[in-house]
Simulated assay, not measured.
Amino acid sequence: MNLLKNPRLNGVLLDVTGVLKDGGTAIHGSVEAVRKLREAGLKIRLVTNETQVTRRALAENLLDLGYPVQELDIVSPCPALISFLQRENLRPHLLVHSNVLPEFEGIDQSNPNCVVLGDAAENFTYEHLNEAFGILINMKKPRLFSLGRGRYYSDKEGLMLDVGAFTAALEYAADVKAEIIGKPQPEFFRSTLKDMGVEPEEAVMVGDDVVSDVGGAQDCGLTGVLVRTGKYRPSDEKHPTVHPDAVVDDLAHAANLILESRK
């Protein structure tokens, strides 16, 4: 699909880290870009695999940076996973960031029958990983849930290992296939579009991850735009299987393309 020839675009999905902000700083031009998209009447969702903070804390941080967003605009893996755990009567062993533990307060965690992995950051110690491995390897039918599968992300200190690297380690050690909650899983995109009331061909995803953001969105029929901010690497433009519909310098550039395509 040619982004510049799609006047039906009326839904915009935006990654957060690497598109709206880098660490605690708003990426230049992105605040105004979001305002322009909103003023044009476009439906917007912030689709993120962020699992170091709650949705409320993330919304507050974005508001402080000047973004016209609210908690309901944010789509993240934790709420979806918690609903699934409750439906399936699953009791998780959690290896997640301390900041998101309050999200799981109502979930029975005794005698765990599954393991949940999020972006635990400094909690990714050998001791904690080995504890999760021990639980998995002793289950008759081990279940491992990973809140995303990113390899790395961009922070103020540079590129940082993401949850996908630690998920792969546990998959290999315990001989189990992780169930991914978040990008690039199709259901994550489809449920977002359903909530927005937008068809795939009417939506565009803007992200800095060529596989999880762009590839995941394209697999569901959305237009996928890659930004050269955040964790973007020049090699992303030559990815062997994912070919973005557009590659732009930043969200400001992407917003201009989106608005021009609707004229």
Rank of each mutant, 00 (worst) to 15 (best):
M1C: 06
L4K: 13
K5P: 00
L9R: 05
V16T: 09
L20R: 09
I27K: 07
I27M: 10
R45E: 05
R45G: 03
T48S: 09
Q52N: 07
Q52D: 10
A57D: 13
L62A: 02
L65S: 05
E71G: 01
D73P: 01
P79I: 00
A80R: 11
I82Q: 00
Q86K: 14
L94K: 04
V96K: 02
P102E: 09
G106S: 08
Q109K: 12
V115S: 02
V116C: 00
T125R: 04
T125L: 03
Y126Q: 05
F133Y: 14
L147E: 08
R149V: 02
R151W: 13
K156H: 14
E157Y: 13
E157Q: 15
G158E: 13
L161N: 09
G164Q: 13
A165Q: 15
T167N: 07
Y172L: 15
A178Q: 06
K183F: 05
P184G: 01
D195H: 07
E199A: 15
A203M: 10
V204E: 05
V206S: 02
G207P: 11
V210Q: 03
K231Y: 06
P234F: 05
E237I: 11
P244L: 01
A246H: 09
L251N: 06
H253I: 12
I258C: 08
L259I: 15
K263G: 14
K263P: 08
